[in-house]
């Protein structure tokens, strides 16, 4: 039997004289040991769907069973007990600032009435698991975002849960830290066998760690399946948009490049591709300063996300042959993709 199973699950919110359909007839199952990703744009109903899984929201219609228990049938006290077997982490970490890291991790243990000496022991163990040895007496206010999320993860795992729910757990982190946290989640899934359900608006997160993916739009799951399948043959419009967000758009066609090289005869035409990995400083101006070249942008599309640039630029470089070559080399060293027009 599946660990989590939803059959035609619907959630409506009644607000004033209006009804909001946040989750609309959703069906899916999550097997034990899986990492299941739900991707969708803001307002799609992802958080609501996730909150249904540990009973923070009540289903309006449909059947929802988790760990062989039908949540709708649980009484208040049973529901609280049931939640102790499910960990949850959040976009904004939601740690108690008034408690130290160690005390934060011990909170769920206190709630589960674990004896004091065992609590401390377990918390230290978790601290080690998430790679924060020695930071136990720090306060959350003294930690970086990535470290805070590690504390969040440690806290969520305190009571040996079978399931970990992640609500945009990496959305407040920079790309580098995101990858580290994702790596940690993957490790937890593999080593401890914890089933993970995560929601995100970044396809990147799905590609990095998920086995299965469901695409959500306006409360409905419009497409779901194996990550590789959904990625290689997206059917729905939303899915295609998400997939595009991941693979960088080749904004420039081959023949337009040829067109540029015929019309800009002064210098060399090159296409620079920024993938956000290394480009934390303004490389363009740095190259202009360092080498005796002029660079003019002909066409391009660049996005700044968390201090990193993503996108493509077509530039014309003018100057001595050697300087141009050195400048292009510099770009390559900085991790920028370089393609020179006319160079075969």
């Amino acid at each position: 039997m599946s660990l989590i199973s939803l059959k035609k699950v619907t959630k409506r919110f009644e607000v004033k004289n209006d009804t909001i359909l946040a989750v609309d007839q959703v069906d899916f199952t999550v097997e034990e040991g899986e990492i299941f990703g739900i991707v969708g744009y803001s307002g799609a109903g992802k958080s609501t769907l996730l909150r249904l899984l540990n009973g923070l929201e009540e289903t309006t219609e449909g059947r929802l069973t988790v760990n062989q228990q039908e949540i709708a049938h649980l009484k208040a006290k049973e529901l609280r007990q049931f939640r102790k077997d499910i960990g949850m982490i959040f976009q904004h970490f939601n740690l108690l600032w008034s408690r130290t890291v160690l005390e934060n991790i011990m909170l769920p243990l206190e709630l589960a009435k674990v004896p004091a000496d065992k609590r401390c022991e377990r918390a230290e163990e978790l601290l080690h698991l998430v790679g924060l040895d020695g930071r136990g007496s720090a306060y959350p206010g003294q930690l970086s975002g990535g470290q805070k999320q590690r504390v969040g993860i440690a806290r969520a795992l305190a009571n040996h849960p079978k399931i970990l729910l992640c609500d945009e757990a990496t959305s407040a982190l920079d790309p580098q830290t995101t990858d580290e946290v994702l790596q940690l989640l993957k490790q937890i899934n593999q080593d401890l066998g914890v089933t993970i359900v995560l929601i995100t608006h970044e396809m990147h997160v799905i590609r990095k760690i998920c086995h299965k993916v469901a695409v959500m739009e306006e409360g409905k799951i419009v497409e779901q399946g194996n990550v590789m399948e959904v990625f290689s043959h997206p059917k729905e419009e939303v899915t295609k948009r998400f997939v595009q967000q991941e693979t960088f758009p080749e904004v420039v066609e081959e023949n337009t490049l040829d067109y540029f090289s015929k019309n800009y005869t002064q210098g060399k035409i090159a296409q620079l591709t920024f993938r956000g990995e290394k480009s934390k400083h303004p490389i363009l101006s740095q190259v202009i300063k360092e080498f005796d070249v002029d660079i003019s942008v002909i066409q391009g599309q660049i996005q700044e996300i968390n201090h990193s640039s993503f996108g493509t630029l077509i530039v014309e470089l003018t100057g001595e042959e050697e300087e141009i070559r050195a400048a292009l080399n510099k770009f390559i060293l900085e991790g920028v993709g370089v393609e020179v027009v006319g160079d075969e």
Binding site: N54, L56, L79, R80, Q81, F82, R83, K84, I86, M88, F90, H92, F93, N94, L95, L96, L107, P108, L111, A112, L165
Partner: peptide, 18 residues
């Protein structure tokens, strides 16, 4: 008090008194 922290406590199965 941060709404998120209260949600987290709810998710941990804390009672009203707790």
């Amino acid at each position: 008090v941060d709404e998120g922290v209260l949600e987290a406590a709810d998710g941990m199965g804390a009672s009203k008194l707790e």
